[in-house]
């Protein structure tokens, strides 16, 4: 993957203090009192043609962030400025009706589970042609052509043998290729890829990743690549953001973060990656317990409960702001 282009003045996606809170208990006559802070004041930019990684463990808000960017979930607060260079920059959160539908031509999502992301009662042709159909692009004949072309492009050849099969007749890798084809068939410029390889066999992961990379280069697509696998992030993304409990704790160039993690959580995450050498030794970073609950968290640093370097100052202060620590590296920690 090439380096991120030198930050042009106008990024494709600019998320500004994006927040999503889900009400935990809701009744007819009760006011919602508890909230799960799934995404809490997250800001980042995605440049054109860039592959931006979102890394973190389960339940940290990665997927919700991705869904916010394609408007599957409405943000509670914050803005997402989408600027494709053609139309006026718009806030995705404010779109509705026709403008939302035309935005959906430009932004697509690839889902994690290839076994659940396709309607079992519809053929591969129906599945891939669905975006064309709902966007009213082309006639029946043209759709067959475009779907076939797309299936060929994602490596399902010959396409004619796949058109009228059902998802259950395909392997996991083939299904994920179909999912990629569905996302690309209307030629979007931005794709949220939600762990597209995590459910796949290791042997076919690289195939899918290389495919997505190729297509991105050929079609000039930007990705938000969501993953919990640092190796995948390193392969796919020029820049990554590490999330913990709804907050971005560290953000910067992928290689720099992987070689010199500054936030204690990133350090712990990296030290959890197995090294395929039994004699290799490295200092373990100890963090204790599991992820604390995102439901009404205390205002202090989200990582406080598990942090090996936290002290009284961390306990009594607000969650640390995401600060530039030089060279485009942003870290949210008082101790870094």
């Amino acid at each position: 993957m090439t380096q991120a282009p030198d930050a042009p003045s106008r990024p494709l996606i600019h998320a500004i203090s994006l927040t999503k809170r889900f009400p935990v208990s809701s009744g007819w006559f009760r006011r919602d009192r508890s909230f799960a802070h799934a995404v809490d004041g997250v800001s980042f930019q995605i440049q054109r043609g860039e592959s931006f990684g979102l890394v973190g463990e389960s339940g940290c808000g990665k997927t919700t962030t991705g869904k916010l960017l394609v408007r599957l979930v409405d943000p509670t607060e914050g803005k997402i400025v989408f600027d494709d260079g053609e139309d006026e920059p718009t806030d995705i959160a404010s779109l509705s009706g026709r403008s939302l539908k035309s935005f959906r031509r430009k932004a697509q999502m690839i889902f994690q589970d290839p076994y659940e992301s396709m309607n079992p009662r519809r053929t591969i042709f129906d599945t891939v042609a669905e975006p064309l159909k709902v966007q009213k692009i082309g006639g029946a004949i043209e759709r067959v052509e475009r779907v076939s072309e797309m299936l060929g492009m994602v490596g399902l050849t010959p396409p004619a043998t796949f058109l009228f099969r059902y998802p259950h007749e395909l392997s996991g890798g083939q299904r994920q290729r179909v999912a990629v084809a569905r996302a690309l068939v209307i030629e979007p410029i931005f794709i949220v890829a939600d762990e597209p390889t995590s459910m796949l066999d290791v042997s076919i992961r690289t195939g899918i990743m290389r495919l997505m990379e190729d297509l991105a280069a050929r079609l000039g697509i930007s990705y938000l690549y969501i993953t919990h696998d640092l190796a995948v992030a390193r392969y796919m993304c020029s820049r990554i953001a590490v999330m913990y409990l709804g907050k971005i704790v560290e953000q910067g160039e992928t290689e720099e973060i992987l070689h010199n993690p500054k936030h204690p959580y990133t350090q712990a995450l990296l030290s959890a990656v197995p090294i395929p050498d039994p004699s290799a030794a490295r200092p373990p970073v100890k963090i204790e317990g599991g992820v604390s609950t995102p439901i009404d968290p205390p205002p202090r640093c989200r990582f406080y409960d598990r942090c090996p370097v936290a002290d009284a100052f961390c306990r009594d202060s607000e969650h640390p702001p995401l600060e530039d620590k030089g060279g485009g590296r942003m870290v949210a920690c008082y101790k870094a």
Binding site: K67, V70, L72, L100, K101, R104, R105, A107, Q108, M109, F111, Q112, D113, E116, S117, M118, N119, R122, T127, E130, P131, V134, Q135, A179, R182, I186
Partner: peptide
């Protein structure tokens, strides 16, 4: 199911999702 979300992402409206999926 994610295929319902996929249909929404593609731009499918309520009627489309209910009657097709």
């Amino acid at each position: 199911k994610p295929y319902v979300e996929a249909a929404k992402t593609a731009g499918g409206g309520h009627v489309h999702v209910i009657f097709v999926h």
